[in-house]
Simulated assay, not measured.
Amino acid sequence: MKCREYKLPKIGLKVQVERKLRGYSQQDFAKICGLSKSQLCKIELNQYKTMTLETAYQIASKLDMGIDELIDLNQINYSN
């Protein structure tokens, strides 16, 4: 059974602002999230093609946010 993929709303600006408010450099924040700096840069610039919910959760948790605070679930396009 194939899992459905949903397009997540763009979260880059929120990630960037919250990261900077907490004093993290891109390099340091990427490392604690288990991402490369390049991956984090793409996320912050909304240039990622796909992102797993696990990655979004990891970012949210490292920012001391709930996943619902990071991703506005009302903006998800559920039509495929």
Score class of each variant (00 low, 15 high):
76 I>N: 00
50 T>Q: 12
23 G>W: 09
38 S>H: 09
46 N>H: 04
27 Q>E: 15
5 E>H: 13
60 A>Q: 02
31 K>E: 15
34 G>Y: 05
22 R>F: 09
52 T>H: 06
16 Q>P: 01
57 Y>I: 08
10 K>G: 03
33 C>K: 04
47 Q>D: 12
35 L>D: 04
28 D>I: 07
44 E>M: 05
1 M>I: 09
62 K>T: 09
22 R>N: 11
71 I>C: 06
45 L>V: 03
76 I>Y: 01
14 K>H: 08
74 N>P: 01
72 D>K: 08
72 D>S: 11
32 I>F: 03
33 C>Q: 03
57 Y>T: 13
57 Y>F: 13
59 I>W: 02
75 Q>P: 00
80 N>R: 00
78 Y>E: 01
66 G>I: 09
40 L>Y: 03
35 L>A: 07
76 I>W: 02
42 K>S: 12
36 S>V: 03
12 G>Q: 05
34 G>H: 07
56 A>F: 12
34 G>I: 06
44 E>D: 02
77 N>W: 03
3 C>R: 14
38 S>Y: 07
50 T>K: 14
44 E>V: 00
74 N>W: 00
55 T>L: 09
69 E>T: 12
62 K>V: 05
5 E>C: 12
16 Q>A: 11
5 E>V: 11
41 C>H: 14
63 L>F: 00
18 E>I: 01
75 Q>E: 14
41 C>L: 13
3 C>Y: 10
20 K>Q: 15
17 V>E: 13
51 M>F: 09
38 S>P: 02
20 K>F: 11
7 K>N: 08
25 S>P: 09
66 G>P: 02
40 L>R: 08
45 L>Y: 12
58 Q>I: 11
51 M>H: 06
19 R>F: 06
64 D>V: 01
69 E>M: 08
68 D>S: 11
18 E>M: 12
21 L>R: 15
8 L>Y: 09
43 I>T: 06
33 C>D: 05
34 G>L: 08
67 I>R: 06
42 K>I: 02
78 Y>V: 02
45 L>N: 15
1 M>W: 07
67 I>E: 06
48 Y>Q: 13
58 Q>A: 12
22 R>L: 13
17 V>F: 11
62 K>E: 11
50 T>S: 14
10 K>E: 14
73 L>S: 09
39 Q>I: 03
12 G>K: 05
72 D>A: 10
9 P>L: 06
45 L>T: 13
41 C>F: 12
63 L>S: 05
74 N>A: 12
17 V>H: 05
